[in-house]
Design a protein around this nucleic acid. Structure first.
Lengths: 214, 214
DNA sequence: GTTTTTGCACTGACCAGTCAGTTCAAAAGA
DNA sequence: TCTTTTGAACTGACTGGTCAGTGCAAAAAC
């Protein structure tokens, strides 16, 4: 079970200060360790060591371990939702259907997970935890991801492409789960397979082409 | 976000010794706490207190905190796989198709999750952690669950009901993810909805009846 | 000269696991 | 029927260790 770490998104967007670089290193170190061990089992000393900075630097840059984690969550989910929405908009520009948009989002999701598997692990692991300090942050980011999909489903219902009977909220959650779990399975146990390969399997499922006919 | 604890399966099957009752109480206490907080953040003192026993009793009944957790995992996944296989076999006896079997398994899965939401939370959260003491146990139980679904998919391919093109492993993983995430969404955010309601939404997705036609 | 990082010693809380001692139901003995 | 013994089950104070977070003077970077 190998999972690659979250590399730099190399997005020095905004201010590429020295501080920003340090924060990025800390994100990368933290995401790998927390994905493997969980938040509580990961120590601040470990994070600092992996990032190659002194422990004091962690606290110079983040108010606490929890805050570091929360900002990491927001950072990663920001990248994911941007990618999903971009995929949907691209198919819209190309005059594609809403099914095409969903398909493109699945592909984008798989691409994100292939790029940042550790972040994905961590996201899944923390998603349904309750009574945690970052509970509210988690709700917000979860909603961001799901909303990106719900928007496409709603649009599809509105233009008659999808049945008005569909349950948008549950369907979106189900799609997220489908992609997350299948992709983690892929990354963990069959990392040699191509994205196209995995995408076609999920695409088939989405479009009900599992049954032999057609 | 409310999630009910894992109640006793009230199976005094085998030996209903005092010890067995204590172990059951410890399972129930542990599953709730670990689902909420995660394994590392949950202390043995908390588990003992919630179960209403002394800390020493935990160690009298289980070699360590990890072992308690592993046995809890095995216990819960045993219940789940039994339920899934039973559902599949029932449709087979009724002369149903393999799609019917999958549908019944989705229903069984939802039923299980409604009954033991905490266990499900915990399962999802720990499923993709690496470098942990119970790593091998986790692999085994994961495989048990997925295999129950893969068996049905294989049977469906064999009898021509499913396309031989489908990727059995990935499709099974995707189905697991679909049900898990949708059900947790249900339990966490819309617990008032009925199982039938949720089941029909997922059933629709499985059978490609999302698009407006038919 | 201001911001950021370093290195490192320190604290106080917390926690997994231990162990000597207690409880009590049921078996053995009378 | 009553008494004694046994041992599995349980208890909770204690120990040794860990870790988040602090404080600060000096160095490095800009």
């Amino acid at each position: 079970m190998r999972i690659r770490p979250m590399e730099s998104s190399s997005t020095p967007s905004g201010g590429s200060t020295r501080r920003e670089a340090t924060r990025q290193k800390l994100y990368e170190a933290a995401v790998t360790l927390i994905a493997e061990q969980g938040f509580s089992a990961t120590t601040v000393d470990e994070i600092a060591e992996r990032a190659g900075v002194a422990k004091g630097t962690v606290y110079y840059n983040f108010a606490s371990k929890s805050v570091l984690f929360e900002e990491l969550l927001r950072h990663g989910v920001g990248l994911l939702t941007a990618s999903l929405r971009e995929a949907a908009e691209q198919t819209a520009r190309d005059g594609g259907s809403k099914v095409d948009a969903l398909d493109a989002m699945i592909r984008a999701g798989l691409g994100f997970i292939a790029r940042y598997p550790s972040f994905t692990q961590l996201y899944v692991a923390e998603l349904y935890r309750t009574n945690r300090a970052w509970q509210s942050t988690l709700m917000v980011v979860r909603q961001q991801v799901n909303a990106a999909i719900e928007d496409v489903l709603h649009a599809g219902v509105a233009n008659g492409e999808f049945s008005p009977e569909i349950d948008v909220r549950l369907t979106a959650a189900a799609l997220v789960g489908m992609v997350l779990v299948a992709a983690l399975d892929w990354q963990s146990f069959q990392p040699e397979r191509s994205l196209d390969d995995v995408h076609s399997a999920l695409s088939r499922l989405l479009q009900g082409r599992v049954s032999g006919d057609r």
